[in-house]
Simulated assay, not measured.
Amino acid sequence: MPAWLFALLAAAFVLYTDDYVIAGILPELANDLAVSEGQAGQLVTVFSVTVAIAAPVAAVALARIPRRWLFAVALLVFIAANIAAAATPSFTVLMLLRVAAALAAASTTPALFAFAARHAPAEKVGRFIAIVSLGVTGSIAAGVPVGTWIGGAFGWRATFAAMAITGSIVLVFVLTTLPRSEGPDETPVLREQVRTLRKLPISLGLLANCVLMTGSMMMLTYLAPYLASATTAGVEERALAFSLSGIAGILGIWLGGIATDRWGADRTLLFGIGAIVASMLALWALWASRPASLPLVLVVATVWGGMAFWNSPAIQARLHHLAGSVSGQALALNTSGTYLGVSIGAAVGGLILSGVGPGGLPLIAAGFAVAALLLLALARRTTQERRS
């Protein structure tokens, strides 16, 4: 594995940590800036919404800029935004700085995966994407807890300062390892980019990812209420469930990348989504027979956590192969779909929790997974028909 691949992993790690770490320092931040925790939570919302909207626009507008320069400038903006965030006394200014950091993330994150896929050997595309994806799971498993601890020990401003320092280290890592020569620019004109991205197999794949993320994040967002109602789990056991799911996610991404290279994206997704459906049905059955065995619920939830991340390399490798020279733009749209799925999942899950109760969550999540599987099957059939 080339050194630049781990530089991309580090960049993904710091960018995603910066998005999620706000959740861990909300009480301290809200108290210091004299706002409610609900208002402070909008810092997460504005970051996610900005990335969802800006990622595809940035991918098209910045398509011809060399990736080395793109990553360097975006990381400089990211570092400056976090330094300013650590010093600002105004919540309004902090909100604007979060938008600036989100714009840096939106222009960089999809390009990290596209660069890895483009420069990977043909037989290792899935594994190269999986390596970069480890930055995402790593941010949840390690980045957010460390950032939260820093905020608790030294104040929330120290967390932003730490993000700026980490971003500076990543910038040096990227500049010293990324190849200077990227080959000829094969980006087509805007009309051809749009024409490629509108092809049905790509559109269906993007929709399938959004639907799949909706179901997965709906269950993850409200996993604690499910555990509380289905088992006798306390706070410590619920924390253990999230930890096990995060660890399984790291393993799942790597194994999903290997499977993508060996089986192909379609078979990998069939296995991964099928396992998610089975896990959700098992969680529903356990809830129906409550109080359920806590160890058994933890095992099923851990398998589900691993499979939820297993699909990521396959989805992105599939889009990369279908989109060709505009794979960066396709992956940017996929990033938008992911953030949109997270938002919809939280909203739909809240309605289900209020109306039906926790037992409805796994069943509805399974329904979303089946819908994603059907969309991918239709996309595959359309691709075969086009080739014929």
Rank of each mutant, 00 (worst) to 15 (best):
S90F: 08
Y339C: 12
A101E: 12
V297N: 00
A141Y: 04
D261S: 03
V356K: 09
L363T: 12
L296G: 00
L134H: 04
A104D: 05
F6I: 13
W287D: 14
R198G: 01
L33M: 13
S107N: 06
L62E: 03
L331I: 14
A377Q: 07
A87G: 09
L204D: 07
A323I: 11
G151V: 03
I150Y: 08
G249T: 07
A346Y: 12
A74V: 06
W287I: 09
A72H: 07
L8N: 09
G359K: 00
V189S: 15
G360R: 08
A224C: 06
G257M: 06
I131D: 03
A366T: 09
R67C: 06
A282M: 13
E385M: 11
L351N: 07
A366C: 05
C210A: 15
M1F: 02
M217Q: 10
R380H: 10
D19R: 12
G246I: 05
L353R: 10
V136T: 15
V211Q: 03
A52I: 13
A54H: 01
V14L: 04
A292L: 02
A3P: 07
A292Y: 02
R118G: 12
A34N: 14
S279C: 14
A11F: 04
P179M: 07
T92N: 13
A10M: 03
I247L: 15
Q42T: 06
A59F: 05
R380V: 00
A80L: 15
V194R: 08
I250Y: 12
I131Q: 04
G215P: 05
A120P: 02
P56V: 09
A74R: 04
Y16S: 14
F6N: 10
S139E: 11
A164M: 07
L75I: 15
